[in-house]
Design a protein around this nucleic acid. Structure first.
Lengths: 345, 345
DNA sequence: CTGAAAGCGCTAACAA
DNA sequence: TTGTTAGCGCTTTCAG
């Protein structure tokens, strides 16, 4: 821990033989001066390894180059990809991200938000695990801009969501393109907005008579759904699942039942949570919500807002893409990929 | 976005009828003054909703109440629990955490570290997914303290690791306590330090002849190990796995083979990654590395270092605890829990 | 016990 | 083209 004092712009100025003001302008490419002076200052700065003190700079510029990311997604399944995208969009702008997880605890959330505001964040990105649930804290009247990603915000806010309907449609059409005709949708709890959206899109593509089974977001529900389907009526030849965990449960249950996937039944999941989708046997074809891109977009938007640029409020929908692996059957792989990927709405 | 100007200490002072200096001292519980003045200032501050500008404060105090968390664990499987612990330890001290993920990219890592230093972080916690791998960046001569958690640092650094040996011993002893005698350890790649440590502890407890199978950190390897074990020699009655994914693969393979878990074979995992361990049928008994506690400890330590308190360098080992679910058999549950939990080394 | 004044490191008017 | 002078909002000597 070398306690060598950081060199300040003052040192750079002195050694370059200019005033502090000139040094500042030279380094920030502002003001007017001979190219010679500017390069000389820049060179001495580089030689000295000068790095401006971001706090001091923030104090005058009223901009901290810091943003806050608030999330209530404990597992990080949604947050981490989003975070990666945000960082990607912001790192070369020199913006750093405060991450704080709040587990649906309103008091804790307020503490964190206050701490962020105290630290003069330029903006806050709120993210969660459900599009139709708000974080337990009101971000509406903050003195900094807010972008909502994957969580519900006020009507006049800037909100980013992935396109559940388009994703579900892509999955369903893929199954139809494979020649499947008896499609079933096994999904999560009925009161989730995304469940409703996906189910509606599924029915629209597969026919309004196509069965939809609502349940839990778990492997166990996938198992149960299969045993229900196989004990009741005409068995399906394709199952589109509401998430990868359900899909994994379905695939496992089918295997145990001696039903071949994808030969007898095609299965498609949702989320592309690789730890689940890639470990399933066979690996899952699944809908990827492009969360990293969503994060990138959130980063871009919060930056524009922070810079005072106008950003149209409202809900921005980002397309999902179908990731084709083996669980759907791949006879017409080429055809599917042509249809299923990155379809604009 | 209410653009109402934040009130400054100047406003508080004016309204309370004191000078800025007095206000500052009153609010920070420093200096000397009548209790009356102090309370009056505090009350007006509270009434006005005054929140000090952390940047301005940092500038004078040379302390930003901000730390950086550096990680190369993309999935967040280790980082997120650690992060939760860190936050828990720091939030009431008003410390916020910059998170940045660097995917083994040295350049990116340097950019992030520099950005953190520019922002005057009070310290950096480095964390990874392997105890025996360094992050792709040298943190040794930074002007701020560094704590290593779950990643290798220089010999004279402050490092936190979980106690692999004790965890493995707890697992093995649990299996022995259940009356199992033909134990096998199925684990990850041999060149991982934690693999070696766990294997050694396993052999020490189970007998030096007890077989250890090295492979990959995957479900697939769990499957393969079972087929190898059941085709080769005397079948085991207990399998201790190097992580939960392997364990899940093992349990699935056994079920497919008609071997009952835990009736015929007891299985224990490692990590307690709930998304895997709880979804396994039956749910996994597994070793929990107490990562949250590790994070808490890291937070405490970095804080002490930041405050200039002396901290003994060296490796600090935190105990694991055995989480008993169903995959090990629970006849002697009480006995096991007595032995297996939070054993100090 | 209280307040005036001098910074923290940097940026930005305004002069020169 | 460059430098002087004020701050940003807060803390902290040091006089009063």
């Amino acid at each position: 821990m070398a306690k060598v004092d950081r060199i300040r712009i003052y040192d750079v100025a002195r050694i370059a033989g200019v005033s502090v003001a000139t040094a500042s302008k030279a380094l920030n490419d502002t003001g007017r001066m001979t190219e010679a002076t500017r390069t000389r200052v820049k060179q001495t700065a580089a030689a000295l390894g000068f790095r401006p003190n971001a706090m001091a700079r923030a104090l005058t510029r009223q901009r901290s180059f810091t943003i806050g990311l608030l999330t209530n997604d404990t597992y990080g399944r949604f947050t981490l990809p989003v975070m990666a995208g945000i960082n990607e969009a912001l790192v070369d702008q020199g913006v750093s991200v405060f991450l704080c997880g709040i587990e649906d605890d309103a008091t804790l959330a307020k503490v964190h938000v206050d701490a962020m505001l105290d630290k003069q964040v330029d903006g806050i990105i709120a993210t969660g695990k459900r599009i139709d649930r708000r974080l337990p804290v009101d971000l509406a009247d903050l003195p900094v801009p807010v972008v909502y990603a994957f969580t519900e915000g006020p009507a006049d806010a800037v909100t980013l969501v992935s396109d559940d309907a388009q994703g579900a449609r892509a999955a369903t059409e893929c199954l139809l393109a494979l020649g499947r005709r008896r499609l079933v949708h096994v999904t999560g709890p009925e009161d989730f907005a995304s469940v409703a959206a996906r189910a509606a899109a599924f029915r629209q593509a597969a026919g309004s008579a196509a069965p939809v089974l609502f349940g839990a977001w778990s492997e166990a529900w996938g198992h149960e759904a299969v045993s229900r389907l196989w004990s009741e009526g005409p068995v399906p030849d394709a199952i589109f699942c509401g998430n990868d965990q359900i899909a994994r449960g379905v695939v496992d249950a089918l295997r145990e039942r001696g039903v071949a996937v994808p030969a007898d039944v095609s299965v498609v999941g949702f989320d592309n949570w690789e730890i689940v989708s890639a470990a399933t046997r066979p690996p899952l074809t699944t809908v990827d919500m492009n969360l990293k891109e969503l994060g990138r977009e959130a980063g871009r938007l919060i930056l524009e807002l922070a810079e005072g640029k106008p950003v149209e409020p409202g809900i921005r929908t980002l397309p999902c893409k179908l990731v084709v692996r083996q669980s759907c059957g791949s006879k017409t792989l080429a055809a599917i990929q042509g249809e299923g990927t990155l379809q604009e709405v």
